[in-house]
């Protein structure tokens, strides 16, 4: 729905992660659900979307019955944090090696979205918040450079 457009990238990231990392995909959707309910839980379009998303989440939790990360949020937080950092570190290494490609833009951006997801579990540490800001800024900066045919520094 229009009112929830700000969450579209998180929804897309969840879909991309479904096969690669179902646990992170699950928490990405929990984040969307929780945030969307704060933004718009009243319009018919949003209610329809949220009902479908909730069905999906309940089904996913059953399918992931053997994954401790889904049933214990402390373990889940650790899992999502590790995954986000892994993507961040990949992007950072590539960037510092002078290989700032579209894949690196994407990785920085995905990392920044997953840092958003971590806010589900409480306030981000200063270190993570700094990485989140850096990832978002780097994604925008490299994207702009590539678009303008400039070499990112």
């Amino acid at each position: 729905p229009q009112t929830l457009r700000s969450l579209a990238h998180h929804v897309r990231t969840a879909a991309e992660l479904d096969k690669r990392d179902p646990v992170t995909a699950y928490y990405c959707r929990v984040f969307v659900m929780q945030t969307a309910m704060k933004i718009d839980s009243r319009s018919p379009e949003s209610r329809k979307f949220l009902g479908g998303l909730m069905d999906n989440l309940e089904k996913a939790k059953k399918e992931l019955a053997d994954r401790e990360e889904v049933h214990d949020e402390v373990v889940g937080q650790c899992h999502v944090e590790n995954y986000a950092l892994q993507i961040f570190i990949y992007a950072d290494n590539e960037d510092r090696a002078g290989r700032a490609t579209r894949a690196v833009v994407r990785a920085f951006y995905t990392a920044s979205l997953l840092f958003d997801v971590l806010s589900l579990f409480g306030e981000l540490s200063d270190e993570l918040m700094e990485k989140q800001r850096y990832a978002r800024w780097k994604a925008t900066y490299i994207h702009t450079c590539l678009k303008n045919g400039e070499t990112p520094i």
């Binding site: 659900m33 309910m37 839980s41 009243r42 209610r47 009902g51 909730m54 939790k61 949020e73």
Partner: peptide
């Protein structure tokens, strides 16, 4: 009609909140 619509909406909202809390084992 407005108040019935509003109470239905908040009822559904409560139901979703409860389902989310159950999902996250917060109940």
């Amino acid at each position: 009609g407005g108040s019935i619509g509003a109470s239905t909406a908040s009822g559904e909202q409560d139901e979703l909140s409860q389902r989310l809390a159950r999902l996250r084992d917060q109940v």
